[in-house]
């Protein structure tokens, strides 16, 4: 089947089987390797992307659901101003160890900043927001520290990306 979709603001057309995974389309067909495969079962969140402005696991999205969809991956976030601030906060707080889970954590961070601007979140709420992201180096404290710092910075994240 042929699928037309938008990825990081660009219209693309790909050939795929109905149950091919969005993750493989991104990495193998479009060369967007910032998105990682961890568990391949929706548990670890390394493959997290935005689909129609909602956070999803790209390992669980079948090609047949992608018609006319709007996908934004970690590779499409780099040029936004908020990305630089997130990157800096992660670096300063030592929130990156091996880095494999980082693209997924950053996507969830973006979602959290977008939804909770001007809201004060407790550590429990921050942890809950990251229920779908696993870090095997277990640097959670540092990641949460970085996110807590970002939440105090009043960073503007748009409601929608590339629309």
């Amino acid at each position: 089947m042929n699928i037309d979709l938008t990825v990081n603001g660009k219209s693309v057309s790909v050939e795929a089987e109905p149950l091919d995974r969005l993750l493989d389309i991104l990495r193998d067909k479009l060369g967007l390797t910032g998105t990682k495969e961890g568990c391949g079962e929706g548990e670890c969140g390394a493959c997290t992307v935005f689909m129609n402005n909602k956070l999803v696991n790209s390992c669980l999205v079948p090609a047949m659901h992608l018609h006319n969809s709007n996908i934004v991956t970690i590779d499409g976030m780099r040029d936004f101003d908020f990305f630089k601030l997130i990157s800096k906060a992660y670096e300063e707080n030592g929130a990156v160890q091996c880095g494999f889970c980082t693209p997924g954590f950053v996507m969830t961070t973006i979602n959290l900043l977008r939804n909770s601007s001007r809201k004060s979140l407790g550590d429990e709420e921050i942890k809950e927001a990251f229920a779908g992201n696993i870090c095997r180096c277990t640097g959670y404290d540092k990641i949460i520290k970085a996110v807590r710092q970002l939440l105090t910075m009043n960073i503007r994240v748009p409601e929608r990306f590339y629309e």
Partner: peptide, 9 residues
């Protein structure tokens, strides 16, 4: 149940 990512789907 699950996570934000899964609950969206």
């Amino acid at each position: 149940m699950a996570s934000e990512q899964i609950r969206n789907r």
